[in-house]
């Protein structure tokens, strides 16, 4: 029933199938590229709205440097939503932290994690844990888990995840402090360009670190 396996037939068949398949995919890609971007944007916007007090206008994306690492953030008129990735128990843990204009944490949300289901994964759902960051004033209390002498209750049996989460929040607070310090001086997009150009020597070491790529 199959046609003969001559070289011509085989080449023809494979190229035809590839052609049809790529055409099909190209069309699908063209159709879905916008919904995919929209879906991602909608998700980000929903998270920003969750972690910050009600704001007006569109959030503006920028990056801010804290202790040598750049973090992306969204600026709104009610505060900053900073995204920080730290190392959790199972892998990267990315948290969005909303810090209002008074430097008080409004709310936090997990963007992605690879923690153990039922243990560390609770950092996204455990009201007792996430709740304590709402309205947390980093000037009055210490953003470190209680085991390490701070004021944050860790999730039961998930100290490493809790530590990573708390660290992310603490970094975000530092970032917003940098942002608040700089916002007075220059225009909105600031932050990214603020810590000026690094010294030439530093640039060299930067490249050195990446040379095995």
């Amino acid at each position: 029933m199959a046609s003969k396996s001559s070289l011509k037939n085989m080449a023809l068949c494979l190229s035809l199938v590839c052609l049809v398949c790529s055409a099909l995919l190209a069309v699908t890609y063209a159709v879905t590229v916008e919904p995919i971007a929209a879906a991602a944007q909608a998700k980000t916007n929903a998270t920003i709205a969750k972690v910050l007090p009600a704001f007006s206008g569109d959030p503006v994306l920028g990056t801010v440097e804290v202790e040598g690492t750049e973090y992306p953030y969204y600026k709104t008129d009610t505060g900053y939503a900073v995204m920080v990735t730290t190392s959790g128990f199972g892998g990267p843990l990315t948290v969005m932290v909303g810090v209002d204009n008074d430097g008080i944490i409004h709310n936090t949300a997990v963007l992605s994690h690879s923690e153990t289901p039922g243990l560390g994964a609770k950092c996204g759902t455990d009201e007792k844990f996430i709740g304590q960051f709402r309205g947390f004033d980093p000037k009055a209390k210490k953003l470190v888990v209680k085991n390490d002498g701070g004021d944050v209750d860790a999730i039961t049996a998930s100290t490493i995840t809790s530590r990573a989460y708390t660290l992310a929040v603490a970094v975000a607070v530092k970032a917003s402090a940098v942002l608040n310090g700089s916002a007075a001086g220059s225009d909105a997009v600031t932050g990214a360009s603020r810590p000026a150009e690094p010294a030439p020597a530093e640039t060299v070491t930067d490249n050195g670190g990446q040379e095995n790529e």
Binding site: T69, T85, T86, G88, G91, P92, T94, N212, E213
Partner: peptide
Amino acid sequence: TKEFTFGGEAHMLNLG
């Protein structure tokens, strides 16, 4: 596709 946190920061792996 995945970021890793070996050695601190989250990053994509390089070839090595």
